[in-house]
Amino acid sequence: MTARSQLGSEEHAAEALGQLLRETGKPHFGSDADSELERLLRAVGRSSSERTPGPAWRTWSLVAAVVALVGVLGSFEWHRRQGVALTFSANGVPRHGPTAIAADSERAVDLEFSDGTVFHVEPAARLRVESSSATGARLNAASAPSLSATLQQTPTRTS
């Protein structure tokens, strides 16, 4: 007997056994079918509050959770940035602490702070950054005949 014919005969035998299960002693309602339906509907009426929430409800819960998480992370990041002192660079070169900026006679210097504020120091002018903190920076522009700045919403505090 080939494997194929053996498989066929096994299918045939299994189907015969399935038919034996299906057809021998066909079931009938122990009680009236209508009364069983009534029993189901009574049970359903009692258990309506136990139903599993649907996909739409779960989707909105997920969206709300993601929004809340993003909000919390954003808040942490905002507070973290608030607590960090302003940094600055002169023509792209990072500087630290009290620093004197002296522009060449032919070349201006752009003093850029980490909050986005940029001071344009004219050629031959001098400027001193006295200090910088999380809330602003103190600049001394006594030797700067002209100083222009591009300010952000929360500009660097200068004096």
Binding site: G30, L40, V44, S47, E50, R51, T52
Partner: peptide, 21 residues
């Protein structure tokens, strides 16, 4: 089996509770 009626109830009740899924 005497449990058949109860199991039929369980099947349809289970379907009702999880129909949304």
């Amino acid at each position: 089996d005497s449990a058949t009626d109860d199991l039929v109830q369980d099947v349809f009740l289970g379907f009702y509770r999880n129909a949304t899924r």
